[in-house]
Design a binder for these strands. Structure first.
Lengths: 325, 325
DNA sequence: CTGAAAGCGCTTACAG
DNA sequence: CTGAAAGCGCTTACAG
């Protein structure tokens, strides 16, 4: 049998109310009474049932997190940042994916209705923003980890400096004497893609822009296309590291040297970036810090703090490696 | 105010007992009564409170998962496999890490005592196996995802064919005419390391063994050491992909061609493996399937099935790419 | 400083 | 086929 608060009360010769008070350090309790209760708790190894506490208090001390996929290269960092923060606050983390489509979403919304968690952290899955905003308006505390730059209005979110990240890549290439860069973007409906592109072009204007889709293949194809058209370029700025890797592969296959002939800069700084050949210069996206910050904001909100309606912006950082020294 | 079972009962003109029965399809209920109750549930958008159900039933329909780190390259796959399976069964997943050391473990064990979840999935964190086994003996259903080959006795676990994986790498190299391979291992106290090594040597005996630690650096250093000692070798079998990447870098730096001079085979098949130069031949570890299988076993156990005391073994698969054609 | 009692939202014998 | 009542393990006014 599990040890309950009633066992502790009986053993300590007090009421359940008193035990509850010493556990939650709420209200006045005689010093010696409290000490006795604490001793019994330790002796019996009593831990309050989270389910019962949740029911009585109307909250679960659990935070939900919804992510589109767990296998994306930077998702582990975001998750680690979130988990560390949540755990340190004594909360639990309930994890949900949209991997199985509509069925996943249904499972998720059911858990919302079931009050399985007090607040929600979300890395925006495709086409789910409206649902999320709806939940938020209905009173569920939510913080968005907005990696794709959807920046909805009046919504607590954490973002990174995509525009400045693009600009920093451009400044670096410019300082290295590059004048004719190719930009390989991500899907053009992403806010982050537009920001990275315009930040870059503001510093280093170019009309060599190929729309990619964040895959290695799209990076490879973009370079092959330019090469086939005999278009001259001396640098590549790819909107993520994977497509930058694809670009480098195509360059190598064509006998171009990186960085001597063509410098390459990526975006994200995923673990792979340091292992490419040559190691990839890239704009670091502070994934772990974004997770930590979002979690801290949400916990603050649960604790009663009012959430900032302005997005919290975390800075990118250019990491210089051999592909663009 | 949230909608409760009492609201549904009142609106449908029945007792809470009856509502509960139609929700859980338990016991006989008149067809038309049931239909009426269902209509009211739909109309009110009623969803049972998971906390209350858990308290009344003594279970939470939630599974806990404990992992050493969320940023390891193959962890995302394991997690995705677990989440998909757990969600499909209508369960929730509560995630814990050991990232913050003793404090994390304490947080975790508290949650165990608090009955926050019904069963536990664990990817073994360093030095935690004893604690886990203890919890299992105390009656907590546990399944171990045993990536490092600790294979404790009489413990439900899922493992992969490390020995056969090593052998398959050796057979492949042998068929390619390689006779003098270097093996770069992981930490030698890992069961998986011993298995990969002995499986390999059984097919292709060698005394060129350097103990590494799964880092890129250790792969690089191992190769540099042999090269400096002018020891001849025509192949490398590294115990994970990261150190294989390090080995390839050192080879390239020394002007050796992969695979012409030296073929390289890794282990794991992490996403990076297809993007190295040249793309890495490697032994695929079925991370996602291990997650799925472990979750299925645990759910079965919660459902009353008796857990197999034999470890469930999932096969590795050699993925042939350019580094060892 | 302390306790009896009601209540959180369900499920489950028990009785009919 | 259906319902009244007790119970899951806590918290929280309320009263003293």
């Amino acid at each position: 049998m599990r040890v309950t608060i009633a066992d502790v009360a009986r053993q300590a010769g007090v009421s359940k109310t008193t035990v509850s008070r010493v556990i939650n350090t709420k209200g006045e309790v005689d010093r010696s009474t409290a000490a006795r209760v604490r001793a019994v708790i330790a002796q019996l190894g009593y831990v309050p049932s989270s389910g019962a506490v949740g029911l009585a208090r109307g909250s679960s001390r659990t935070v939900g997190m919804l992510v589109p996929s767990l296998t994306w290269p930077w998702m582990g960092e975001v998750l680690q940042g979130v988990v560390d923060t949540i755990e340190a606050a004594g909360y639990g983390l309930l994890l949900f994916t949209c991997n199985r489509g509509a069925e996943s979403v249904e499972h998720f919304t059911t858990q919302v209705s079931a009050r399985a968690f007090d607040g929600l952290l979300v890395v925006e899955p495709e086409n789910t923003l409206d649902t999320i905003i709806g939940l938020h308006h209905k009173g569920l505390p939510v913080v968005l980890i907005d990696d794709r730059g959807s920046h909805p209005e009046d919504f607590p979110s954490v973002v990174t400096t995509n525009r400045e990240g693009g600009a920093s890549a451009a400044r670096h290439l410019l300082a290295d004497g590059r004048r004719r860069p190719l930009v390989i973007t991500g899907p053009s409906h992403f806010g982050c893609v537009r920001d990275r592109l315009s930040g870059f072009r503001e510093v280093l204007p170019t009309d060599l822009v190929v729309v990619g889709d964040f895959t290695e293949l799209s990076g490879r194809l973009a370079v092959e296309k330019l090469l086939a058209g005999e278009v001259a370029f001396d640098a590549v700025f790819a909107h993520n590291d994977i497509s930058a890797a694809g670009a480098m592969r195509a360059l190598r296959a064509a006998g171009r040297s990186v960085p001597d002939d063509i410098a390459v800069v990526g975006f994200d700084n995923i673990p792979m970036a340091r292992h490419t050949e040559p190691p990839l210069t890239t704009v670091h996206q502070p994934a772990r810090e974004m997770g930590e910050t979002a979690a801290t904001m949400l916990l603050g909100h649960l604790g009663g703090a009012s959430a900032p309606d302005e997005p919290v912006v975390l800075p990118t950082e250019l990491i210089v490696r051999k592909s663009a020294p």
